[in-house]
Design a protein around this nucleic acid. Sequence first.
DNA 1: TCGTTATGAGTGAACGTTCACTCAAATCCT
DNA 2: AGGATTTGAGTGAACGTTCACTCATAACGA
Lengths: 193, 193
Amino acid sequence: MSKDARNDARNKVRDAAIALFAQKGVKATTIKDIARAAGVSEGALYRHWASKEELAAALFAAEYTALSHDLSAAAGGGPAPQRLRRVVAWAFGLVEAAPDRARFLLLSQHDALPLVPDGLETPVDAVCAIVGDGIAEGSIVDADREALAHTVIGAIVLNIQSHVYGRQTAPLGALADTVADALLRGLSTGKGA
Amino acid sequence: MSKDARNDARNKVRDAAIALFAQKGVKATTIKDIARAAGVSEGALYRHWASKEELAAALFAAEYTALSHDLSAAAGGGPAPQRLRRVVAWAFGLVEAAPDRARFLLLSQHDALPLVPDGLETPVDAVCAIVGDGIAEGSIVDADREALAHTVIGAIVLNIQSHVYGRQTAPLGALADTVADALLRGLSTGKGA
DNA sequence: TCGTTATGAGTGAACGTTCACTCAAATCCT
DNA sequence: AGGATTTGAGTGAACGTTCACTCATAACGA
């Protein structure tokens, strides 16, 4: 059997599972659901993952680290405030570009976060690093960097969440500047890097 | 049976269920778990709630509206920035005073929020109202009030979440000022009310 | 090149377990 | 006594997981 076919099955299961997990959550999604949506048998799934829980944990860890990596890339270079502004805009854009990924991460975090192995690079780490740089260069106020990073991420996540749940009806793109302005006024010293 | 005893059973089930839901989540908590922890039979539970799902939804709605009410009370009066500062401190204090309530609300929000009936007063509404007052009195920058409210709540929630999950080890009390300072620098106009 | 064998992903019915929910009998209260 | 309430073993459906078997492809030998 060719390697392409092998990856096809894996990828089909992965995509189907993420979409279903994103819609109904991990617990409410059955193996039958996933197999049917992916167009494979239930048994085939167990050739690639040991259990449903391991499948969910593996998918979450992969998406979580990818998010962290993409976030760092989107931040780019330059002074920390500018990088944070890019992070906000990028995160809001991601929801519209890949709603399943975003919803999957939002929905599964409470189940899956405790299963993520320690030492993995997380999005929190990435933002922490930017904030730390900002403190070092004097462009971000000198305070607990984790608390500031959580403040930034929380502001992003809750705006996204409320959008995903249909509470916030204004398009996210229009809010990026509002949220970024408020956060940066709060975190910046006003001095350039 | 006296009304007190009836309420006793209800309250015992409610407390036990919240503690278990907070530890394992709703789906992973069984009726047997709840009945055993509350010291009642499984059947007795169905005299008060029609199903496990209804029990979870009712508990969440009650805690959610209570949270909203308590939050408004904790905010007190005066200029909006001061009220928001009190909200931050109160929320952080709540986690230490009633960790089960906080954890239950955090864990169940994705399952239960869609079931909360429309028109119920939510914590988001309460913060929105404060922000709206601030905009009206000129003490809060004039921007989308929902986006600003989500920014405030997100910052609070993510700091709490990271504390509950053991990532943030600094005591929450020590972070209240850091987070409130950052948020208020971001939202205030600097003009008094 | 062509026939034979080895590989391992894929299949899906069957299995055992878990769990929400029921109900006949027991218990309690007035 | 008689209604209200509680009990917990029982029920049936749903679900994750298994496993004996299939078959397309790869690897091999002559």
